[in-house]
Simulated scan of single mutants.
Amino acid sequence: MKLIGSKTEQDMRRQLMCSHDALFSQVPEAITKLRILQNKFPNLLTAYSLHWIPEQGEDIITYLINTDTVAIVETNRHDLNIEPIIETMMLSEYRIGLTKQDRIKLAVALELAQEVLRSKDKK
């Protein structure tokens, strides 16, 4: 999907950047989420939250990992000792059946992830 710089894209970009910054912050809750991802994906360089479903006792968050994998992570909100459930899929599989809004969000997240990975390659 080609991005055109629309207001929707700009809003999604801000939202995705905030989710990324929060995940990589030093806040204890974020550290826990990041460690879960790093344990499953040792080559993780960047991650963006594409979707979040707050359930009664757990959170279900869909992440774009780097630029090629999507992870759906279910964590227990009340008992951190309960092992998270992680489902992974390739990006091509995740794209199937997305709404236009979700396709735009994924395209923006991919662009942001590519920018992060390019900047890390230069270092």
Rank of each mutant, 00 (worst) to 15 (best):
I4P: 00
K7I: 13
Q10Y: 09
Q10R: 12
D11V: 09
Q15G: 00
M17F: 06
M17N: 13
C18I: 12
S19W: 01
H20V: 03
A22Y: 02
F24I: 03
F24D: 07
S25V: 09
S25Y: 12
S25L: 08
V27P: 02
E29I: 04
E29S: 02
E29F: 02
A30G: 03
A30Y: 03
I31C: 06
T32G: 04
K40Q: 10
K40A: 04
F41S: 09
N43E: 10
L44R: 09
L45P: 02
Y48I: 07
Y48A: 09
S49M: 07
H51R: 15
H51Y: 15
W52P: 00
I53L: 15
P54H: 11
P54N: 13
P54G: 05
E55A: 11
G57V: 04
D59R: 01
I61F: 03
N66C: 15
T67Q: 12
T69P: 02
A71T: 04
I72Q: 08
V73L: 11
V73H: 00
V73P: 01
E74A: 14
T75Y: 03
N76F: 00
D79E: 12
D79F: 15
N81L: 08
E83L: 15
I85R: 10
E87V: 06
S92R: 11
E93I: 13
E93P: 02
Y94E: 04
Y94P: 02
I96C: 08
G97C: 10
G97R: 05
G97V: 07
L98V: 09
T99M: 11
K100N: 11
Q101H: 09
D102A: 13
D102Q: 15
R103K: 15
R103Q: 14
R103I: 01
R103P: 00
E111V: 05
E111P: 02
A113C: 09
A113Q: 01
Q114E: 15
E115G: 08
V116T: 08
V116G: 03
L117C: 04
L117G: 00
R118P: 01
S119C: 09
S119L: 14
K122V: 11
K123S: 12
